[in-house]
């Protein structure tokens, strides 16, 4: 096993207080390997999105620690967290990934531009070419299809060569063909570029693109699959249901 790109240890997240409180993560410990594609699965309310938010520095844990590389997120203030997201993390959300006033190319280089850096043109071309949106670069999001929008988002997540990319149901709003293309591209990025990706999904077919699947329920780790096929995922989910 290679070293962890990100991990949480004893992670607990409680929303609300007293009677009305909900425990989303319950003393959870899990690692995400470098250069691997990990999927997080689990029923609604299992805490999978919360886990993603907390390890990506978008939310903070109630107890326990979350680390990206060797950086403990709990020790960072708001500004440092923002800078960490900018430099070390890429995001693909389910929807609303793009700034409507910027064209595709500008959206892709947004994190680099914000940081005041210069995009690596060769790398940019490679990513855009791989993703197949070269001819769409000057279009605004409203002129792109849903699939194209998500691919632009994926390109944005990759172009700054982040330590880790977090994807939250990236194909959730897409038709199956567009979804498959997007996930195929993400797989490609892991295999060819050695990118680390962590994806939350509830789609077994999507999860099958991953190297490893971790299953959550009630905020706890309840299972794991390596090199899964869609059928195995279905089986596993069924067994969880029983």
């Amino acid at each position: 096993m290679s070293t962890a790109a990100a991990r949480v240890a004893g992670a607990t997240k409680v929303f609300g207080e007293g009677e009305a409180s909900v425990t989303a993560l319950d003393d959870l410990t899990v690692e995400f390997e470098q250069g691997k594609f990990t999927a997080i699965m689990g029923p609604s309310g299992s805490g999978k999105s919360t886990l993603l938010h907390c390890i990506a520095g978008l939310d903070t844990l109630t107890a326990g620690s979350a680390l990206i590389g060797e950086v403990n997120l709990g020790e960072l203030n708001e500004k440092d967290l923002t800078l960490l997201r900018r430099e070390k993390v890429g995001f693909i959300f389910q929807a609303f990934n793009l700034i409507p006033t910027l064209d595709a190319a500008e959206n892709i280089t947004l994190p680099i531009d914000i940081a005041g850096g210069d995009p690596d043109q060769t790398w940019f071309d490679t990513v855009v070419d791989t993703i197949g949106i070269t001819d769409r670069l000057s279009h605004r999001p409203s002129e792109l299809s849903g699939g194209q929008q998500q691919r632009v988002a994926a390109a944005r997540a990759l172009v700054s060569r982040p330590a880790i990319v977090f994807a939250d149901e990236p194909s959730g709003n897409l038709d199956s063909k567009s979804g498959a293309e997007l996930l195929g591209f993400m797989r490609h990025a892991v295999d060819e570029f050695g990118q680390t990706i962590v994806m939350v999904t509830h789609d077994p077919n999507g999860a099958a693109y991953a190297d490893r699947i971790v299953f959550l329920a009630d905020g706890r780790l309840v299972g794991e699959l390596l090199d899964p096929t869609a059928d195995q995922v279905f089986e596993h989910l069924k067994s969880m249901g029983d």
Partner: peptide, 16 residues
Amino acid sequence: KREIGLLRAVGTTRKQ
């Protein structure tokens, strides 16, 4: 709100 949230998520600081 969403747009600003997205900008923040991808690393735009509050100051920016």
